[in-house]
């Protein structure tokens, strides 16, 4: 793992329309080749943070840098900077409907290579490789809206894989997927990490954190980054997870413990909940 800072955010705040706070005084650093999870409950500001990292939003306060350069609106006016940054960073949106805007799967996967000005032959090769890699060759002529949730997610990943970014930003990648698609997606993220890619995943699914991250940042419901550490350190801090609405406590049974009891927990198959 290299020590080059891919993202360096210092005291970043962002509010929608300058009024609705989404992120407050956030500081974080992501190094090249790192796998980082951003944990937070719904509405905590995870998606906003990823959009700031992808240069889609710009901070109201603080500084956001990527690859040593400030992410500002002015910087993205420069075609060379925009081209270089977009080629290096890929964002997979939480809602695949947003990401899949083209009328066919082939067009969707070809969109980025085309916008980045690749030659026709290279575009065709990259699209074919991405489709094969994600095992969706048969979907190439299908309309994205006709696909299942798992297939849509694969196409969304292929649409980013086709320009082979150094950095993957994943927004709630397992949300709404069936168990098989979820485990496939976790494997995909592990593969990207092994291939030396930087992977930043925003999630509130604590079950996958240990597999997809080496380091974790936690955002609370007041939109502040309140902790960072290894997955083991963060997941064992129940007080923090309860305070950030990532873990809850109610009556349940275990497979190996039949009497009702209560303690903070996340949802695993071995828990039988007794109250909603």
């Amino acid at each position: 793992m290299s020590n080059e800072a891919v993202f360096d955010f210092q005291g970043v705040s962002f509010a929608y329309d300058g009024k609705v706070k989404a992120l407050e005084d956030a500081s974080l650093c992501v190094e090249a080749g790192e796998r980082v999870a951003i944990l937070g409950s719904n509405g905590s500001g995870k998606s906003t943070l990823l959009k700031l990292m992808d240069g889609l939003y710009f901070p109201n306060a603080g500084t956001a840098c990527a690859f040593g350069a400030a992410l500002t609106e002015q910087a993205f006016q420069d075609d060379a900077f925009n081209f270089s940054f977009r080629q290096r960073v890929g964002l997979v949106f939480q809602d695949s409907e947003v990401q899949l805007f083209s009328p066919s799967v082939w067009d969707e996967v070809a969109f980025a290579p085309l916008q980045l000005g690749l030659r026709r032959e290279d575009v065709v090769k990259r699209v074919d490789d991405a489709l094969v890699s994600l095992r969706i060759e048969k979907l190439r002529d299908r309309a994205p809206h006709r696909l299942s949730g798992g297939e849509k997610k694969r196409v969304a990943l292929a649409s980013v894989l086709s320009f082979n970014p150094e950095v993957w930003l994943m927004d709630e990648p397992t949300a709404g997927l069936d168990p098989r698609s979820q485990s496939w997606l976790v494997d995909f993220l592990i593969e990207q990490g092994r291939a030396g890619k930087t992977v930043v995943t925003a999630t509130h699914d604590l079950n996958i954190v240990d597999s997809i991250a080496d380091r974790v940042y936690v955002i609370n419901e007041d939109h502040h980054i309140v902790a960072q550490g290894t997955p083991g350190e963060v997941l064992s801090n129940h007080e923090l997870l309860i305070a950030c609405n990532l873990m809850h406590e109610h009556l349940h049974r275990h497979d190996d413990r039949s009497e009702e009891h209560s303690h903070p927990h996340i949802h695993l198959p071995s828990h039988e909940h007794l109250t909603a």
Partner: peptide, 24 residues
């Protein structure tokens, strides 16, 4: 809201206001 998000998704993948398309 959807149109705003879709535009961001396009920008994220290199769209600069003048689309490039290709037929096969």
């Amino acid at each position: 809201h959807l149109s705003g998000e879709v535009y961001l998704a396009m920008q994220s993948r290199g769209f600069r206001g003048y689309p490039r398309t290709m037929d096969t």
